[in-house]
Design a protein around this nucleic acid. Structure first.
Lengths: 216, 216
DNA sequence: CATTTAATGTTGACACTGTCAATTTAATAT
DNA sequence: ATATTAAATTGACAGTGTCAACATTAAATG
């Protein structure tokens, strides 16, 4: 790609600056004009790189999908003694990704980008992520570690779980510090950072999903 | 309340019209001016009823919380032979509410209303809903039907599940028709309406949460 | 009843937005 | 060195949230 023309690397900078504005002041403060202003470029310069605002947001979502897909792919390549652990690792990684990249995550799975404006590439990448969740489940079923329920369902259950907790935490609906307080030592909230230790939360949720909640 | 002054019942109409616009064309098409236009009133008339746009959206969210809270309250008042069924009923009602009132739901639990702009009343109503989820769980634990796990955790698991599936379906990320296709007869998608039969989906998810996914 | 008061609605104004069309600048290809 | 094309600019237009000043009318008050 070499060096760029005038600005140098405006496309990249636009994405970065948009991300920064969203996390600082929220999505509605992202304007094409403000982006131009911040990057010391004219108000319509961004249109040379993104056909409209929606296209810019799509690019961010795409970036997120690629990142998440890579993370999950790497975990699935790791060898583990216990294949069940791999499922947990995928779940933990998923939620951690969401919490570390809330802006990406909201654009990926939220309603900010209208359904009609989602690019085919976006849809493809989303499927790739789902397959990454499906994979370790099938593996465990092959080894008779998980009941022979349709693996799609189980994947959807795990996805539902991971997505649910991700969005509730990201959007400040569930307070990790209180939601999991006063629990057995198993779950301990990291009081210093103020954020829950996702590994332990997921460990606990995993135990529930694994064994169920019924008395037997 | 009798008849109103000039327009009659502008406040009510503003909420209704906003809801209609959001479900037809999305949130960003709701503008104070457009609301005025549609209701044949001046562009700033809405400001006599809502201090700003955010206040209008808060009012919609509040309406949603009250509705959901009432629904869950009614279910919890019903007598059931099997208290476990009550938990399932609450979950099903929750998801059904979300699917029937997607606009309300997104405003209630999404990020459209900035965290800083949420009124205290909004927070209180959200807690009320959570308590409605907690109640039947505690009841089942009293009767030794559910393992003596901290009931808060279980409520959070159920909430996570219900919220996760609600948002994935509402935002068109999970296709109910395909996500639960090719399953045992237990789950059958309503092909006519194109929407999943939430009762059955939840029945299935409920079974998984109840008994876990592990082979034993 | 007449009159004050407060609720409700209007008009004008401002700074801001997305985005198009026409134009200019400069990097690359020839 | 010139032609081509990518990148950036300026001007324009219709739309937006919201404030301040003003107008109208319902309700409260005497």
């Amino acid at each position: 790609m070499k060096k760029k023309y005038h600005h140098g690397d405006l496309r990249r900078k636009l994405i970065e600056t948009a991300l920064q504005i969203i996390s600082e002041q929220g999505l509605e403060k992202v304007t094409m004009r403000e982006l131009g202003k911040r990057l010391e470029v004219s108000r319509t310069a961004p249109y040379r790189h993104f056909s409209d605002k929606s296209a810019l947001l799509c690019a961010i979502a795409e970036e997120g999908y690629k990142k998440l897909s890579t993370i999950i792919g790497q975990i699935n390549e790791q060898n583990t003694d216990d294949p069940l652990i791999r499922i947990q690792n995928v779940g933990v990684a998923y939620v951690k990704f969401a919490l570390s990249n809330p802006v990406h995550y909201r654009l990926m799975f939220g309603n900010e980008i209208l359904e009609s404006k989602r690019t085919p590439e976006l849809v493809r990448l989303a499927e790739e992520v789902f397959n990454g969740v499906l994979f370790p489940i099938k593996l465990c079923q092959d080894k008779k570690l998980i009941r022979p329920i349709n693996p799609y369902i189980i994947a959807n259950v795990l996805w539902t779980m991971s997505h649910g907790i991700s969005t509730l935490l990201i959007d400040g609906q569930m307070q990790a510090t209180t939601a999991f307080k006063g629990l057995p030592a198993l779950i301990q909230v990291n009081e210093i950072s103020g954020s829950a230790d996702i590994d332990r939360v997921f460990e606990y949720l995993g135990e529930i999903i694994a064994n169920g909640i019924l008395e037997r």
